[in-house]
Design a protein around this nucleic acid. Sequence first.
RNA 1: GGGAGUUUAGCUCAGCUGGGAGAGCGUCUGCCUUACAAGCAGGAUGUCACAGGUUCGAGCCCUGUAACUCCCACCA
Length: 877
Amino acid sequence: MEETNNISKTYNPAEFEDKIYAKWVENGYFHAEPNKDKKPFTIVIPPPNVTGQLHMGHALDETLQDILIRYKRMQGYEALWVPGTDHAGIATQIKVEESLRVNEGLTRYDLGREKFLERVWDWKKKFGDRIINQLKKIGSSCDWDRERFTMDEGCSKAVKEVFVNLYNKGLIYQGSRIINWCPHCITALSDAEVEHAEQAGHFWHIKYPVKDSNEYVVIATTRPETMLGDTAVAVNPDDERYKNIIGKTLILPLVGREIPIIADEYVDKEFGTGCVKITPAHDPNDFEVGARHNLEQIKVMNDDATMNAYAGKYEGMDRYECRKAMVKDLDDAGLLVKVEDHSHNVGQCYRCGTTVEPIISKQWFVKMKPLAKPAIDAVKNGETKFVPEHFEKVYFHWLENIRDWCISRQLWWGHRIPAFYCDDCGEIVVTKDDEAFCPKCGKKMRQDPDTLDTWFSSALWPFSTLGWPDKTPEFEYFYPTSVLVTGYDIIPFWVMRMMFSGIEHTGQVPFSKVFIHGLVRDSQGRKMSKSLGNGIDPLEIIDKYGADALRFTLATGNAPGNDMRFYMERVESSRNFANKIWNASRFTLMNINIKENKLPDLSALELSDKWILSRYMKTVKSVTDNLDKFELGIALSNLYSFIWDDFCDWYIELVKTRLFDKESESGVAAQYVLTYVLSNTMKLLHPFMPFITEEIWQHLPHTGESIMISPWPQYDESLVFSSEEEQMQLIMDAISAVRNRRLEMNVPPSKKAQMILVTKRLDIFNAGVPFFEKLASASAVTVTQNKDSVPDGAVNIVVAEAEIFLPMSELVDRDKEIERLTAEKKKLEAEIKRVEGKLSNKGFVDKAPKNIVDEERAKGEKYQAMLDKVLETLSAL
RNA sequence: GGGAGUUUAGCUCAGCUGGGAGAGCGUCUGCCUUACAAGCAGGAUGUCACAGGUUCGAGCCCUGUAACUCCCACCA
């Protein structure tokens, strides 16, 4: 990064972003090592799925993390950002199967497990690399030496360690229970992986005849096909209507099987007919009832939700086909009493949208209650804090209502379950070893064919990536991590599971802060999705507007945890901001010939210098404070207005005259201040817009290799000049007032005018003379205490502490002037009335803080003085 | 059926512990002022959803109402 003042005329991020990133990587600035002399600051990336490419939500997530990590790095922390990707079991397997089907007409079974997995690894390589490249384009300062993958060797080791430990503690068990089954993905799902959607359905009322009698009961069901697996009908024991038939036997229609009528508290007398068919193999409640009454469990479906042999004549039909056929048969048999419309919630697979089937199945589970408790406590006692805080409620709600976690998946892509079976004697061994021999008969054992829920490995990510279960120096130093940055939609899947896993396996919470952000939506507020085709590719935005503009857009105008809308006008305005910075820097470079970046002696500072330094210091403070509070949007908007309004619109304009005379003492001082403020402001902006700030910083006089490893600006009280700020404010207000009047009177800027400023505060306004000349189109300025020199009929402007006259009597329209002054008078009187109202309120004067009361008094005096002048002018007319 | 969030300028949104309503975009007026027309200067636009309450003082705190959004939920 050579030092030159030749900086291209227009802001063109494509010219330097990639080059700068390559330099950063080359110099190892992103790399972190355990370092006793520094405090660690650690973030592990929420690993993007290797299913495809990054979307705008990722861009937001990465931008926020990069802002935090760069900020802390500059503050002197040993800042580590661990990058990586997630194997995303179901999601990736579906993608690869789909591509196999479309491109080659093959299924995974055609290839076989081993060959299929090779294909998935190919896919992983391709998309994993693409994702890493996208991360780099955004500017992410990840430690690429520590890039991880949820199925790499280390993560696999951690997974086995955890599985075996939990198994040995009795916290992992195998059992036959009702789970959510996706017939399309052919696998079990956890509760979190099921989305519920309201669906229009029916309530079928069906007669079940009582054996050896003309009696019958009527049950109501939304899933008639499951009656093939009914093994009882239940009524409430207190239901008078049915008391006398408890214990009798029913003939299951269409099947002919005999089933008992049982009594169970579970049945709600008020709902439906008060009789409930019990299908223990296909419904979680019925499963419980069945268990209490020792009922047989008859599973009537295959894994793909077609009916099996227990369905008799319906065998081979799809579940919905079967439903239709059965309803018709029941109707034909006169057993269908009525059909009601009924909308109810149906579970759908979160990956493919297929309606899940609750089904009995032998799976592996994690016992959640003992793990949930400490995870709840850790947030309750503040060891881990959510930002914004209200997301803790979501977290608590999940953990407090949690049921055991089904972790086995009938997929090929994922961590193989480390359990081995002996086909001869049925012995089970759970081990970290890759193979096992039966402890009883010595025979080589068969490994469980299933894999683990993707989230099982993601749950270990904060420590598996740092070397756990080994006590590596990295683990010892960087763990627990500092902040987790993620979207609120992923709290139940991931945040919660990392929490209880971290506490259980490392004895420590995995992170002390959880910084939650919202979703990125399209311009109409809709979720960006493939099916709607409304997604915007972050890379396209970067190509066109630059990564800095994208980052600015994502980091601004939004409070933590809230969703945001993304649209091009916002990106354009971000790019315009970058362009503004670019040009202000170009101006600076064109006007300095100093070689050092330092401040001149305080004695050399002029009013405007003190003003901008003071404003700058306040910006340092607000940006730092807001970053510490995760208020990135506020921090950034403070910087925006400091740069654009204070630095560009005022300071640069104020010092132009001095800069024309580069060699003068005043000109040199201006160069130093200009350079100092710009360069340090670039530091404040660097976490948000890393590329442009580096590019500019490199061109300015500097010490050190890169802005990204330069120290974060410190707040320095000695550079806060409050009275100069106030003085400058009065001058600026006067300038604005003159500009306003001139525009009102249609005076072109090219027409200069004499200006007489009457004030009692010569000390304040004398310093403003050059500024009035430069910025208020004044040809000659007179600052005086009396009105003697004011010609008759001059244009009059009343401002705080002064009255300004422009001798342009030919432009003054007496009637209009009276009208304007009357309006002014009204306004001032209203203000005075408001202030007086407050001050005459005894409660206010007595109870309000003194500084507030004093402020009001001062305002009152100021407005009164202005009103007096307005009245004076008015009466003269 | 629970729970959360939102409601502020034409649009999109800020507004930190209560002390005279803000930004960006759009719009209107005037400017090619040699850093920037991706710009400069100036202007207009708000019963801060509604109704109560607390307070000297409420966009902000409390209660209730309405609308929208989201999450959770085994009434068959």
